[in-house]
């Protein structure tokens, strides 16, 4: 059969003479143009409806955008995010080191921690910590209720949750570093701490930063969950106002806009951090 088909294949077209005098015309793509126009029209309609819909009450949004109580809420959201990230990654790095150690007990404890705290929804965890007094009315002779304010509950609950995810991110980063790097450092007589600080972590950061940036943005928005235990964050401040004034949508827009602004700033920051840790990675050839 193959010889049959081969016989029917026409002779290969000859390269035309004077090939250098021919002009190449790119393929026309009418579908691309149509799709672009449709999407732009739809986008225009959406923006138009948002701007023209009086119910958004943009003037109210403007009034409250920089009001004291909103800014106080924003401030709490920002520092809560920062504290949770720092503590979460500190605990997460420790858990990652446990997991990568040779000690089977430390390994198992780290694995168990990550399993447990990734299994419990953060909302459930916050409510449990909030009601911890029911389990332990007193800790070291102090009433638990006095020991754990709602803000403290928020820090503890979010940090424990964050650490479980941070542990995996840091572990992944450390595993991404070539084993030969550690051997070379050992052969040069560098101490364990120096190897970790100077050789492993800077290289691990390249794979840690993108997911950590993701987590940072997730945490920023995730802190809004603390409004359920009456912690005065950005969302809860907006809620307090609209419970009084019934201007629900404009105040949710105030919170939304602030979350967007902060997320954008963090995104820019991440770009520069990534650039810093990417030094030495571009090859000349």
């Amino acid at each position: 059969m193959s010889s049959d088909t081969l016989a029917k294949v026409p002779a290969a077209p000859r390269v035309p003479e004077r090939a250098d005098a021919l002009t190449i015309v790119p393929q026309r793509r009418p579908g691309q143009w149509t799709a672009a126009v449709v999407v732009l029209v739809l986008l225009g309609l959406a923006v138009n409806s948002v701007l023209r819909n009086q119910a958004f009450q943009w003037n109210v949004v403007a009034d409250y955008f920089t009001s004291d109580s909103v800014l106080r809420g924003l401030w709490l959201t920002l520092w809560l995010t920062a504290v949770v990230m720092v503590l979460g990654f500190a605990l997460g790095t420790l858990l990652a080191a446990f997991r990568l150690s040779a000690n089977p007990v430390l390994k198992a404890v780290s694995w168990g921690y990550v399993w447990l705290f990734r299994s419990i929804p953060v909302l459930v965890q916050l409510l449990l910590w909030f009601n911890i007094g029911a389990l332990y009315p007193q800790i070291l002779g102090v009433k638990t209720v006095n020991l754990l304010s709602p803000v403290a509950v928020a820090v503890v609950g979010l940090t424990l949750h964050e650490a479980a995810y941070a542990a995996e991110v840091v572990r992944g980063g450390m595993l991404s570093v070539d084993r030969g790097q550690i051997e070379a450092a050992q052969a040069l007589g560098l101490s364990r701490l120096r190897r970790l600080r100077r050789i492993v972590l800077p290289q691990a950061m390249r794979s840690i930063v993108p997911p950590a940036g993701n987590m940072l943005i997730g945490t920023l928005k995730g802190t809004s969950i603390v409004s359920v235990i009456a912690v005065n964050d950005l969302l809860f401040s907006a809620q307090l106002i609209y419970h009084r004034t019934y201007q629900v949508i404009p105040l949710l827009m105030v919170a939304t806009l602030w979350y967007t602004v902060v997320t954008s700033v963090l995104g820019v920051g991440q770009y520069y951090v990534e650039k810093h840790y990417a030094r030495g990675t571009e090859s000349a050839r």
Partner: peptide, 22 residues
């Protein structure tokens, strides 16, 4: 052990230079 290694130079097949350092 690390102190002993500082008296012995080792050159690897795949160089293992630290890529993030000049």
């Amino acid at each position: 052990v690390l102190k002993q290694r500082t008296r012995i130079g080792f050159v690897f097949q795949n160089f293992h230079l630290f890529p993030h350092l000049t």
